[in-house]
Design a binder for these strands. Structure first.
Length: 440
RNA sequence: UCCCCAGUAGCUCAGUUGGUUAGAGCACCUGACUGUUAAUCAGGGUGUCGGUGGUUCGAGUCCACCCUGGGGAGCCA
């Protein structure tokens, strides 16, 4: 039911975030009721418009009595427009409030399932489409958007070309992880796990590129660090060697953190993030080889046999030794991808790197220098039992003007989780896709 | 895929050794209150105890299997 206003709504529409600029003027806010408190002939409407929440004070008598009563009974998350004079007021949660002189109920809500009290994660995830309205979730999504802008700005301003890799692929890029199979006109095809190989083709054409898009992995992972659909940023740079790749990764991550600190203070505050932890993320980051990391783990009583990958608890230990991200390089070839270049000084090693985020957020970057050698890659494809025919185009990149090159992949949601201080990455993407979870 | 925990009102949970009619807070509804901050105060109980089968005189409670959710491992970004 729509209740007509007793007076006209202001023609000046303002965003809650900007209300401080409108003190003493009459503006209209378009939003949703996040909560309502009443005290006799006063109503305190907490109105949310996506940019913030403002307290709107309604005095009985200033509006039509029917409208006043309707507002008093208005369920949370009903949509409404209010207008009135903006005032600075210390008693108001935002420091600014509106003295309402006109209002219109746009859509009265049914009883809203999410309350100010506790809810289980399972319940909130089932209502993800509504949970996004909560202040912490909205803050996380704003920071995610800022991080995406920072990523694009970083590469665009340094001569990289954004290169969109295909989502449908004929075969596995890395051959190991589980693939989502789709029916492609009667033939099997797969959703991409990584755009990297296409990024390499792009780097040979354009010099420096970055692939930015979703990746799909049908791993039956059930941890706070995994999604079946996640977003990945993959720069690929012609003529870059391992040390160049590490320098870029370091500068890039530091820039993202610095941009968020500069532009997202209210969001970080809403998330109760300890910003001093982020302010410490300044180059240079500690670097160690895989072998040095194994020794460090061994000295701490955590024996990992040389040649085996670290487990998540091992990574957490290593990251706990620094308040910055750490770079670990030169992993053994035994558990790394087929296309990585070997270390000329020790053929057992790859010229690879991982970056591990502080505070136990795990691996956020994995990358390497790629092998530029045709014969080596032919042998690797055979040894890894990969379908040679599907990789002929990739081998062409070595046949026609091969050069040293390298790059890395960054998992967006893991970076968002780390910067926001969010325990589980499912809250760092609007609609997470996880093992057995595809609704809503 | 493996290990651990949980499933009782719309939500979060309690429910003793198996024993009569199933309990609380919040949400919600009604009323009071001219400055509330998750407002407060008074009144109101809304239920296929996850499902199926079993043990028993009797099952929310015990057993088996299944389903769903949560935490962790492996794997990864």
């Amino acid at each position: 039911m729509t209740v007509e206003p007793t007076t006209t709504l202001s023609s000046t529409i303002a965003r809650v975030r900007d209300l401080a600029e409108h003190v003493a003027s009459n503006v209209r806010v378009q939003g949703w009721l996040s909560n309502c408190r009443s005290s006799g002939k006063l109503l305190f409407l907490q109105v949310r418009d996506g940019s913030g929440i403002v307290q709107c004070v309604v005095r009985k008598g200033t509006l039509d009595d029917d409208l006043f009563e309707a507002l008093k009974r208005l369920p949370n998350e009903s949509s409404l427009e209010v207008s009135g004079t903006v005032k600075a007021d210390e008693r108001s949660p935002g420091g600014v409030e509106m003295s309402v002189d006109a209002a219109r109920i746009v859509g009265e809500a049914a009883e809203y399932p999410i309350t100010n009290k506790e809810h289980s994660t399972g319940f909130l995830m089932q209502h993800r489409h509504l949970w996004l309205r909560s202040s912490k979730q909205a803050a996380t999504l704003r920071i995610r958007a800022r991080i995406i802008k920072s990523i694009r700005d970083y590469f665009d301003s340094r001569g990289y070309v954004c290169l969109d890799a295909p989502m449908f692929t004929p075969a596995a890029c890395e051959g190991t992880s589980t693939l989502f199979e789709v029916d492609y006109f009667g033939e099997p095809a797969y959703l991409t796990q990584s755009g990297q190989l296409y990024g390499e083709a792009g780097a040979m054409a354009l010099g420096k590129v970055y692939v930015f898009g979703p990746a799909f992995r049908a791993e039956k992972s059930k941890t706070r660090r995994h999604l079946t659909e996640f977003w990945m940023v993959e720069p690929e740079i012609a003529y870059a060697e391992l040390d160049d790749v590490m320098d870029i990764a370091e500068e890039y991550i530091a820039t993202i953190v610095s941009d968020v600190l500069a532009d997202c203070r209210p969001e970080l505050e809403a998330l109760e993030r300890d910003v001093s932890k982020l302010e410490a993320v300044v180059p240079p980051f500690p670097r160690m080889t895989y072998t040095e990391a194994i020794e460090k783990l061994g000295a701490a009583g955590r024996e990992v046999p040389w040649g085996e990958d670290f487990g998540a608890p091992d990574e957490d230990y290593l990251s706990s030794t620094s308040d910055k991200p750490i770079l670990i390089h030169r992993y053994p070839a035994s558990f790394k991808a087929f296309y990585m270049k070997r270390d000329p000084s020790d053929e057992r090693l790859t010229l690879s790197l991982d970056m591990i985020a502080p505070e136990g957020y795990g691996e956020i970057i994995g990358g390497s220098e790629r092998s530029a050698d045709l014969e080596f890659l032919e042998k690797q494809i055979a040894e890894h039992d990969l379908p040679r025919a599907d990789f002929e185009w990739y081998l062409d990149l070595r046949r026609y003007g091969t050069v040293p090159h390298g790059g890395f992949g960054m998992g967006l949601e893991r970076v968002v989780a780390w910067i926001c201080g969010t325990q589980h990455i499912r809250e760092c993407i609007p609609f997470p896709r996880m093992l057995n979870k595809i609704y809503p």
